[in-house]
Simulated assay, not measured.
Amino acid sequence: MLTGYHVAVIGGDARQIELIRRLNEWDATVYLAGFDQLNESFREAIDLDFDSQQVEKLDAIILPVPGTDTDGKVEGIFSNQLIHLQEEWLKKTPEHCQIFTGIANDHLKELVRKVDRHLVPLMDRDDVAIYNSIPTVEGTLMLIIQHTDFTIHGSKVIVLGLGRVGMSLARTFGHLGANVSVGVRSSKSAARVYEMGLTPIDMNNLEGTDMSCDILLNTVPHQVVDASVIKQLPSHALILDLASKPGGTDFRYADKRGIKALLAPGLPGIVAPKTAGRIIADVVSRLVQEDTRKENG
């Protein structure tokens, strides 16, 4: 339970709906900004007034998974207005106030540093990323089925990256009967791929590697699927880039070659927002309570 805790939810997408519901169930005092199109769907919640004493009570501020833009603005699909995260009112929050975001850019990191508050980039946490890999894999399967005319079973699949999402992807596609290869950079990861019964690919030498496949899944957030890789793909191949924007694919060259390439970050919020919101809520609840217990000795 979060009785006595004050939490502000600022902007976001459908994941925040489940997050707000959970916070209300746990008896937190919830303040909302960027949800004016919901027509009072959350009557237990309070509209956040940035100029009021509400800010001085906040134990936590929860931003959307994308965080802010490079100017500190927060977007939300339930409002036509952008909310500007400002240093002046962040300074009014209690010293123990935690600021949660999915991804933290340099602007947000610097802003939080200036006000000396604790920033928690949730997508950097193993627990959140591993839980989120479940709806990510399901969304990946959905997109592949929609955009191909062949079965996953028996197809050749390459997964680039053996991180928390990459491992779930590799395991799932292997279980579905695909011929799976996984791009890795270390001998340790190569050993793990081999142990999983899959084929390791050395990502330090992709130009010298056979990269022809039916489905190419990228999880690496910098360009690795370049022209040297794309030119090896057959015309029917599908590239699905799951890395955060702008992804790790040369989309211009893929289009020039007639290869279908899709950038699909944030799949949990699209295919399973209720589950994704619950994941965020559970982790935030635990961290807020842990931090408050530390404050109280």
Rank of each mutant, 00 (worst) to 15 (best):
T3M: 14
G4V: 14
A8L: 10
I10E: 03
I10K: 01
G11Q: 01
E18P: 06
L19V: 05
I20C: 03
I20G: 02
L23D: 00
E25V: 14
W26C: 00
T29S: 05
Y31N: 06
F35D: 09
D36T: 14
D36W: 01
Q37E: 06
Q37M: 06
Q37L: 15
E40H: 08
R43V: 11
D47C: 06
L48Y: 04
S52E: 09
G67E: 07
T70E: 15
T70W: 11
K73M: 11
L85E: 02
L85W: 11
E87L: 14
E87C: 13
E88P: 05
L90Q: 03
K91Y: 10
P94A: 01
L108T: 04
L108M: 06
K114W: 06
R117T: 00
R117K: 14
M123C: 00
A129V: 13
E138M: 05
T140Y: 03
T140G: 00
L141V: 09
S155E: 12
K156N: 08
L160P: 03
G161I: 08
G163I: 03
G166D: 04
M167V: 07
M167D: 07
S168Y: 09
S168R: 12
S168F: 10
L169D: 01
R171H: 15
N179G: 01
A191Y: 10
M203F: 08
M203L: 05
N204D: 10
N205L: 12
G208W: 06
T209W: 03
D210E: 14
L217P: 13
L217V: 04
P221F: 09
P221C: 02
D226N: 14
S228D: 07
I230L: 15
I230D: 01
I239T: 03
I239R: 03
L240M: 02
A243H: 12
P246S: 08
G247E: 04
R252Q: 14
L263W: 06
A264M: 02
P268Y: 02
P273Q: 02
P273R: 01
K274A: 12
I280G: 04
R286V: 06
L287N: 04
T292D: 11
R293L: 11
R293W: 05
K294H: 10
E295W: 10
E295S: 13
G297N: 11
G297R: 10
